[in-house]
Design a protein around this nucleic acid. Structure first.
Lengths: 357, 357
DNA sequence: TTGTAGGCGTTATCAA
DNA sequence: TTGATAACGCCTACAA
């Protein structure tokens, strides 16, 4: 009894016939609109059940002109950071009865364009994305098509769209400061690709903190935001003439690579080297020692992004919002205790934000 | 110049008018079908460009009755295991020019039903899912609607659908054997929820290995497949009268929890306790020591699942396939070296499969 | 080669 | 309260 070409081919027509009513009545029952006799309603519902009827969204959408569907385009869906954000988005969309269409650009602007086009054709009501490039021209056509976009995690300079990020500068500043307060003077920074705004801003925070601490000499290695990048950057630091006594790593995957590098050199943490990572990922408490990290509210970030986008869809002309979320420096054991007693940061307490992007 | 309610509201009509041709001609250009004058084509394309026209998929789908769109419904999208599978699916779908609609059931059968309904309404051509329950009746209605399903990671007994899993029994058997060959006699197993087929099969493999090794006494703790579950199960084992000398953990997140528990008790690995985990996740090489694990081919699993489903969509009446993928025991440093010299397992070599589900 | 027109499944308007 | 019908945007016979 396999269905031929088109799945779910029972229509409102057939339901109407079976129930002995008009299609209009069936429609009314479906949308439980106002006035329908209980008797009629019952007949229709029975017919629906017996036939295994499902409304066809394509037809609904065509008719209504409005679509409860949102496109989500990430740059690397296997990065746990994005995964967690995705979970937040999914949660909010589901609550609002929106469907989520997912794409992965894999950091490739070409693939990104493909997905954006597919989203437009699919008729999504809005798009949440993490841009692969900072070139605003690549994204204009979506806005021109009347589809609102929301940029998450990264910013696209000059593009007038809602944006949700974390306080990158401040977060890196505080983390660096934490290390400096513990007595470290040689604090290195493993950064990310320079065309990524997150990398740039975090680097700014790091540099500022080093400067404010009396012009300590900065030391920066650039990684690729992936595990191998963190590993290699750490190698470079460790085999250099003068090893840093502490290091701040700009994202979660690179932190893993860096840890591996440190272990392989049999250097103790925090005795031999102190380390602060980004992202409070599931594994950080299982590392040895448990990691001090800058926690981003990833799930919340996704939730807020989705809500903001839905608002925008409803009221397109509201003022553009750029939301900057607070991070939290979570102190565990990878940095040790004060070498000089002057730290003011408390364990597990959110930081004040006194710097902003 | 913000668009009102409906996005992308320029239609084939308007393009036709602007180009001074009929809608049929525009359509022909769009689907670059056979015969159209280059001159006409050029005019149409220009009009399309100037108006920023995008075809409306709802209308197309309504017309065509067939949809290049697949639903993916996972039980926990923030579990990195699923994330990696998802990446594989996305990759295959994108290649085939299919759109991916994502849902997260959060292990809740009610939400699962909601998503399945939404998928049907959305008109997906097929569904890939990880079942929240083993009750086949919950899924029948999808098949009755003519939409093929593919079960991934888990099986739904009695449901005649394509299924793709790993050789759970064999994998657990081999891993347990590895520990036994290293001289361990008290090997515990941290299992998962009993209504999950993966947990059941892995447990079977463990029990069989213990039995085959001369009826070694098994010891099983049930966790929830999440991090806290692994932590608690490990606590129970460690504070018990007789600590096991080795433990096998049934999934990746629980392994993290177990590691944390071990570290907190200041027990050395593998000296104090040996551990083998499931899933070769990004973090396992950064743990101290690097973890010996059973690696599932997660990305490939997703890819194969997507391809299989697309095949099924094209040819619905082909015989049902149940694909069982090989795993690989990757030996690192969390089990130590042979206490009695009789292991036959090589580092990083795929295992033979001599047991099957 | 190009145009006309009907219909895909639904909902909303209007009439009964 | 219920029914008939037009329209959403697109594609494809069929006609010109």
């Amino acid at each position: 009894m396999a269905n031929q070409s088109s799945p779910t081919n029972v229509t409102i027509q057939q339901v109407a016939e079976k129930a002995g009513v008009s299609t209009a009545s069936v429609s009314r029952v479906l949308n439980n609109s106002s006035q329908v006799t209980d008797e009629l309603k019952a007949r229709v519902l029975r017919a629906i059940d017996e036939l295994g009827y499902y409304p066809n969204r394509a037809a609904r959408h065509l008719r209504a002109g409005v679509v409860r569907k949102v496109g989500v385009l990430f740059a690397d869906i296997s990065n746990p950071f994005f995964t967690s954000v995705l979970a937040g988005i999914e949660s909010a969309l589901q609550q609002a009865d929106y469907v989520l269409v997912l794409g992965n650009s894999n950091e490739d602007p070409r693939i990104e364009q493909l997905h954006l086009n597919a989203f437009l054709e699919e008729g999504v009501a809005g798009i949440i994305f993490a841009a692969t490039t900072p070139v605003k021209e690549r994204y204009q056509f979506v806005l021109q098509a009347g589809v609102p976009m929301l940029s998450i995690d990264r910013t696209v300079e000059g593009l007038k769209i809602d944006t949700i990020t974390i306080n990158n500068v401040d977060a890196a500043y505080q983390a660096t400061n934490h290390l400096i307060n513990l007595g470290h003077r040689d604090v290195a920074f493993i950064s990310g690709p320079e065309n990524r705004t997150t990398a740039r801003y975090r680097q700014m925070g790091y540099l500022q903190a080093m400067k404010d601490a009396g012009n300590l000499p900065p030391r920066i290695e650039i990684g690729n935001f992936r595990q191998d990048g963190g590993y290699e950057a750490m190698q470079t630091l460790l085999i250099s003439a003068k090893q840093p006594s502490a290091v701040l790593v700009a994202n979660g995957l690179m932190t893993l690579g860096a840890m591996q590098g440190i272990h392989e050199h049999n250097i103790s943490i925090p005795g031999g080297i102190a380390i602060v990572g980004f992202d409070d990922m599931p594994w950080v408490t299982s590392l040895q020692p448990p990691l001090t990290v800058i926690a981003q509210p990833t799930f919340e970030m996704g939730r807020i992004a989705a809500r903001l986008l839905l608002d925008r869809i409803r009221t397109p002309d509201n003022p553009i919002q750029r939301i900057n979320l607070e991070t939290q420096l979570i102190i565990r054991k990878s940095c040790g205790y004060p070498l000089e007693g002057n730290t003011s940061i408390t364990v597990d307490t959110p930081l004040r934000s006194n710097l902003s992007v």
